[in-house]
């Protein structure tokens, strides 16, 4: 029997995110870094032109990576390869789909291309991950077809405080929805600008309908374990690995701390003597207009 095969279904899209759980996804800008990430035990790599810390430092418009670079990265690793497109830039997304990347991150790290619409993610066979600061933002992205959510945090800072804030906010919002009366669902849905069915699903299940990773400011093994203990399903590390003193060793340490996130003995051991972490930035030192998390809505 041929069994009525279907590609690009929601289950197939969310399924890949399920397989990445408990793992670490690392930002890489070239094939050499991709190989280091794979060797360290990353479950996927994120291909981009510059890591967020460099985007922050150099300024200008940040765009999708050069397709040649994406191809080189796909060529050299066997783990899934993700790549970033600008918010609302559906043609960058089409290009990334044509390159056969495994996941597209419609990301606030890049300069937004549309101030009104995010990408219609249902139109793609490739799954999307999107950032969120609260439950409403997460559900709006899911309603647009996102198959995976991550905290926005504040990328390129090496400062975990914003990722913590966003995860705690999502959890608090879920509690609010859980304790809401039937009669309040419609109003909550209106506030969040999403269909009531999505809000009802969250109330019944007490969780997001898709996998939720931590991202934006994770720089140490303890940061990764902190986000896991708060309830995240896995970790994105952006600048935290390749802006540190010893990327290979730090990458391995973050992978182990993510697996053994409840085991302080393991976290202590892997954190020993792994070189300088990336230099961090305190959030109040970033003018509000330069905060990446404010991009998207």
């Amino acid at each position: 029997m041929n069994g009525n095969p279907e590609t690009g279904t929601l289950r197939v899209k969310t399924g890949l995110a399920e397989m990445l759980k408990g793992g670490v996804i690392m930002d890489v800008v070239n094939a050499e870094q991709a190989k280091i990430a794979e060797d360290a035990g990353a479950v996927a790599v994120m291909a981009l032109e510059r890591v967020p810390a460099d985007i922050r430092a150099t300024g200008g418009v940040a765009r999708m990576a050069d397709p040649l670079k994406v191809r080189e990265i796909i060529e050299v690793v066997s783990i899934p390869v993700m790549a970033k497109c600008r918010i609302g830039h559906f043609v960058e997304a089409q290009v990334l789909e044509s390159l056969k990347v495994d996941y597209i991150d419609e990301s606030e790290v890049l300069t937004p291309a549309d101030e009104e619409f995010h990408v219609d993610k249902w139109a793609f066979k490739i799954p999307f991950v999107c950032g969120a600061r609260d439950l409403g933002e997460a559900l709006r992205r899911i309603d647009e077809g996102a198959a995976m959510i991550r905290t926005k945090g504040e990328p390129g800072t090496g400062n975990v405080v914003e990722a913590v804030r966003h995860m705690r906010k999502v959890l608090r919002d879920i509690e609010t929805v859980r304790s809401a009366a039937d009669a309040d669902i419609a109003e909550l849905a209106e506030q969040m600008r999403v269909p009531a069915a999505l809000v009802s699903w969250v109330r019944e299940n007490g969780t997001l309908p898709v996998v939720n990773f931590a991202a934006g400011g994770i720089a140490t093994p303890s940061d990764a374990a902190l986000m896991m203990q708060l309830g995240c399903d896995g970790i994105f590390v952006g600048s935290g690995v390749f802006k540190s003193g010893n990327p290979a060793q730090r990458a391995r340490a973050i992978v182990e701390a993510t697996t053994h996130f409840e085991d302080a003995d393991v976290i202590a051991r892997v954190s020993e003597n792994i070189g300088e972490p990336m230099v961090g930035i305190n959030i109040p030192e970033i003018p509000p207009a330069e905060r990446m998390q404010e991009r998207g809505w």
């Binding site: 029997m1 095969p5 590609t7 289950r11 197939v12 495994d102 490739i126």
Partner: peptide, 27 residues
């Protein structure tokens, strides 16, 4: 089967089962 774009689901005849089993194949 290839990369994620080739991931799929399909009904399978699984030994000893009367009804098909929906197989989800991810990379």
């Amino acid at each position: 089967y290839g990369r994620q774009i080739d991931s799929f689901e399909a009904d399978l005849a699984f030994h000893g089962m009367d009804e098909p089993f929906r197989g989800v194949f991810i990379r």
